[in-house]
Design a binder for these strands. Structure first.
Length: 602
RNA sequence: GCCGAGGUAGCUCAGUGGUUAGAGCGAACGACUCAUAAUCGUUAGGUCGAGGGUUCAAGUCCCUCCCUCGGCACCA
């Protein structure tokens, strides 16, 4: 494996609080991966931020009578708090409204434009007759000209499935205020995707390590590539960096064009924040680095076609800056993605998440009442890794009580309680039996098997394997019965408990990517000092124009943990054991369902 | 309509052409009672959506059909 790994996490959209489906799709898997790779000793750069431009933010702002920036500020804070509380170990979680981001986005736009990959075309656009704002196709509804369905969307009829053009709708109206739209010609910039079709086909065709659905889906898209508009008639976005558009408030860069560039701009910002402005090049201009992107399946096209197309087009041209500027001949092209880890969707009690219908569990709401590690456990073991999966409260309670608490929590608790009661410290082992050695070896073997699964982004299988190992330690204890042996042979009982603790110490390391909070707690109970992994922190960053923004970051270089068998020192004093997890009352299910019903009807 | 994904034990899901199709949970029985009434062991439970085909061999590959879900590019 290479030394430099970029963990690029999809940017949550800042039009509202994020729900469990969002963090299940990209946040938790990405963090597990990043934490694991750091424990392996690799240089990991994990970046993301809130995606703050685009129509939905302006709609929320209009509705509340505030500016889009105020909406973005609010949800940037709420989402950042969510991610912090979930322990998502970003090297930088920033936002798309920074000067740095604008500068990098404009550089890419300009470079692509100068190289001829951005074309200007005139199209017919819809605008609200009331406010004059542009209406994306999705925000127009009317009667379907094909089947007569009265609530067809501007781009597609949900009834007959036909693809539509909003101009063809009968009796079209704005979904926002019901007024009829006006159609007029408008000029836009288009990314010339067909120019990259051949290169993309060769590249994607060679990515046999991608999840099959990602690869197949992307190859299919290539069959019919069209230039894609990368500007919008909107006042909220990154300005178009061409003289005739610089001061225009009615046309900005399309939110998705700027959002994917965030991976790069956040890396550049991170390097600046660290006082090493060229450090981002170790990931982006290093042919040996590997870039992993984490997202929900709805974002695949942006990460396998559009962003790679932009990167190919940019090549070694332009210079993003942030330090020394290399001569053009010495520039290295930007790295393409190595893997696109796309997840499916999480549904909620059998239904699609829907904020408007109250079928939703917001991350901040969830974390008010429950701990982050049980949620991380559930989202990993039962999350939408390969197919849509369903979140139900009954299943959450069961997974927590019958799996997490019963198997892993109880193993830790029973072992530590025994040791603490009789020894207060890691017992000094005497000669180890064949059984002892076999168990230790078997658990240590897990670093290989679990590690391989994590390298391949098979999080569910990896966690299942760790749980299986925990069961074997439980089995060992039940079989050896140190609590009986101690009455006649204190030395042998101490040895058994030493064996169990040594296995638990190793399982703790394997659990750390999945369950960082309780692993840290266990780390301390085992008598260690310092952080096995963490902590996260918020910092304020001031830019050249004086604007200040908050970033989620952390100094992860001080992590004590290593993805390898530990040598638990005999004699190390333990701290008094506490349960790692809380057992949840069955009543939680009824309470939470009632809460949801109330929200759905209210 | 087109494209794609799925349909495997009561539930949630693994399964890379090759013994008798697996795991966890649930169930039954037994053991243990150190531990958050947790744990450990044993057992039961499946014509792998239906029907054809290829093959020495099919849950796995091919075809047809049924059912569920997703995407279809100016929502992000």
């Amino acid at each position: 494996m290479p030394d430099y790994i970029l963990v690029a996490v999809a940017w949550p959209y800042a039009s509202g609080p994020r729900h469990l489906g969002h963090v299940a799709g990209f946040g938790v898997p990405a963090d597990i991966f990043a934490r694991y790779q750091r424990l392996k000793g690799h240089r990991v750069l994990m970046v993301s931020g809130t995606d703050e431009h685009g129509t939905p933010v302006t709609l929320v702002a209009d509705k509340e009578g505030v500016s889009p920036k105020e909406v973005a500020d609010r949800y940037n804070r709420i989402i950042g708090d969510d991610l912090y509380r979930l322990g998502l170990s970003y090297d930088l979680f920033t936002r798309t409204t920074t000067r740095n981001h604008y500068r990098v986005v404009q550089d890419l736009f300009k470079t692509l434009y100068e190289k001829g990959y951005i074309l200007k075309q005139t199209t017919l656009g819809a605008f609200a007759s009331t406010t004059g704002r542009a209406l994306p196709d999705r925000y127009i509804e009317g009667t379907c000209p094909i089947c007569g369905y009265a609530e067809a969307r501007g781009d597609q009829c949900d009834n007959c499935g036909s693809q539509l053009d909003p101009v063809d709708l009968i009796n079209p109206r704005s979904k926002i205020d019901g007024s009829p739209p006006v159609f007029r010609e408008t000029e836009h910039f288009f990314l010339d995707l067909p120019a990259f079709a051949e290169q993309l086909a060769v590249w994607i065709g060679a990515q046999e390590h991608w999840r099959p659905n990602v690869r197949t889906f992307s190859l299919n898209l290539l069959k019919d590539l069209k230039p894609r508009a990368i500007t919008r008639d909107l006042d909220w976005g990154v300005p178009i960096p061409l003289p005739e558009f610089a001061d225009r408030d009615d046309k900005k860069i399309y939110v998705w064009f700027d959002a994917v560039i965030g991976y790069l701009s956040a890396s550049v910002e991170w390097a600046n924040n660290c006082g090493t402005p060229d450090a981002w090049r170790e990931w982006w201009q290093n042919p040996n680095s590997r870039h992993y992107y984490f997202m929900g399946k709805d974002n695949i096209v942006f990460h396998t076609i559009i962003w790679p197309g932009m990167l190919l087009g940019y090549g070694s041209g332009g210079e993003i800056g942030g330090g020394s500027v290399a001569a053009e001949s010495e520039r290295v092209p930007l790295q393409l993605p190595f893997n696109i880890v796309s997840s499916e969707f999480l549904t909620m009690e059998g239904r699609k998440f829907s904020s408007s219908r109250g079928i939703v569990i917001y991350v901040n709401d969830f974390l008010e009442r429950y701990d982050p590690d049980p949620l991380r456990y559930f989202l990993t073991i039962a999350g939408p890794e390969n197919q849509d999966t369903d979140f139900t409260w009954a299943e959450f309670v069961r997974r927590n009580n019958d799996e997490l608490v019963a198997t892993w929590g109880n193993l830790v608790n029973r072992a530590l309680t025994n040791v603490y009661r009789h020894f207060k410290a890691v017992p000094q082992p005497s000669a180890l039996t064949q059984t002892d050695l076999r168990l230790i070896e078997h658990i240590e073997h897990g670093f290989g098997t679990v590690g391989d699964l994590l390298d391949n982004a098979r999080f569910k299988a990896a966690l299942t394997e760790v749980m299986r190992l925990a069961m074997q330690v439980n089995s060992y204890l039940s079989d050896q019965e140190p609590w009986k042996v101690i009455k006649t042979d204190r030395e042998r009982a101490g040895t058994m408990l030493y064996v169990a603790l040594r296995c638990i110490d190793n399982l703790k390391t394997m659990m750390t990517p999945f369950l960082p909070f309780t692993s840290q707690k266990l780390h301390e109970m085992l008598g260690y000092e310092g952080y096995i992994a963490g902590p996260l922190e918020f910092r304020e960053y001031t830019e050249s124009d004086g604007s200040v923004h908050r970033g989620l970051t952390g100094d992860y270089s001080g992590w004590r943990g290593h993805w390898q068998p530990g040598s638990l020192p005999a004699g190390q004093a333990l701290r008094e054991p506490q349960p790692l997890f809380k057992k949840l009352d069955e009543q939680v299910v009824a309470e939470e369902l009632a809460r949801m019903e109330q929200r759905a009807s209210g």
